[in-house]
Design a protein around this nucleic acid. Sequence first.
DNA 1: ATGTCGGAATTATTCCGA
Length: 257
Amino acid sequence: MRIATWNITGLRARLGFFQHWLRERQPEVVGLQELKLSDDHFPHQEIEELGYRAVTYGQKSWNGVAILSRMPLEIVHKGLPGPRISARAFSPREPETSASAAFTARTEKPSSTPTSRSSSRGLDALADHFERCHTTSEPLVLGGDFNLCPAPLDSWNETALAGHIFHTDAERTRFRRLLDWGFEDVYRKLFPETQTFSWWDYRAGAFHKKQDLRIDFLLATRSVMQRVRGAEIDREYRKKKDGLIPSDHAPVFFDME
DNA sequence: ATGTCGGAATTATTCCGA
């Protein structure tokens, strides 16, 4: 069973590309971010033709998440509380295996003043949610675009970028809170030393210049982790396919028994 | 070469945000 996450960067503009990937990779569950459409514009018919049902939490123009599944989905939670929180979560539950969540975490640019809040209140809201509503003994998967590099290995140039956006201690501390609670970073757990990336800025030719970051993750609790047999960051799908333009993020997935 | 996109506002071009 394959579980995936992907910041698709505009599902309407990406539909053909996404369908290509679904056919090729055959994931069982996919968390999508940055749909950039409201729920009434979600292409349910096209998705169902490929055997998936989707639960959506969209937003006009920006953000918006969905979970697609070939298994039955039940919505047990939608959205996160708190003012000005841009992270959003679903927790569809499938009877025997897993709950899953997809979200987008926005990172604010750290200001020059040392007292400024630096980043990702969405991550705090997410950690609050799991602490309040779940236990680590549950089989849980949390996937999304976290907009941060957890460690120097996850950046193409930690030396130059340390302290800057994606590379601040504040961001890393917030991310660590999810790990301390009981999540494992699946890809990193399987490949502790491998430098692999998931995002390349559209601007300035970052993909070709190898200006790359790993900011998209699938996190899993221990009972899921024990069943994981492989993980991949799908860099092939950061490239053009049949002339179709890719997202600026690569899909990330793992396989479990 | 800032090697770019997607979407909205407004009607094929410009602006904005990432």
